[in-house]
């Protein structure tokens, strides 16, 4: 399954929409030698225009809401969203705060989202989320 599944390398653009850095360091940990997803060709890229997957962390603060929307629009199709961490899913510990516009699905309605719950999720969980996103993209390509 794995060699076939990774014939197409996913490029991920990471957006911090006001997260606490906990998820962000776990994303980097997933890329570095212990977990090493770079061996599958999964890597972070510097621009949304190069990305297949946008990894959002954080509960989306008011300042970041329009930037999140713009990044989604700038990413070419087919694309999926990977929401890493509980706060992007529901607001997490920050729910009810006055400076939040999130969660992500409220900002970008109708987008294809994959959720990785946890505060923060372990690198293994993030890798699983990326694989789910790949399976979806592979299905889109076949059609």
């Amino acid at each position: 399954m794995i060699p076939k599944a990774f014939k197409r390398a996913l490029w991920v653009f990471h957006v911090n929409s006001g997260s606490c850095n906990g998820c962000d360091i776990e994303i980097i940990a997933a890329l570095t030698p212990r977990y090493d997803v770079e061996r599958f060709g999964i890597r972070l890229v510097g621009s949304p225009r190069h990305a297949d997957v946008i990894a959002f962390t954080g509960p989306v603060t008011s300042d970041m809401a329009d930037k999140v929307k713009r990044i989604y629009e700038q990413t070419p199709d087919p694309k999926v969203i990977l929401v890493v961490g509980s706060c992007g899913i529901s607001g997490g510990v920050f729910h009810e705060s006055y400076h939040l516009e999130g969660p992500i699905e409220k900002i970008i309605p109708g987008a294809k989202c994959f959720y990785v719950p946890g505060c923060p999720p372990r690198p293994e969980a993030i890798i699983q989320g990326v694989i789910k996103a790949w399976e979806f993209l592979e299905g889109v390509e076949k059609k």
Partner: peptide, 26 residues
């Protein structure tokens, strides 16, 4: 200010002091 989440406000309006420990962790 892009990362402002209103943590102090939550600690003063929503959470009891024990919950605030886990909030301050974030």
């Amino acid at each position: 200010s892009q990362n402002h989440r209103g943590i102090e406000w939550i600690g003063m309006n929503r959470n009891n002091p024990v919950q605030s420990i886990y909030l301050s962790e974030r």
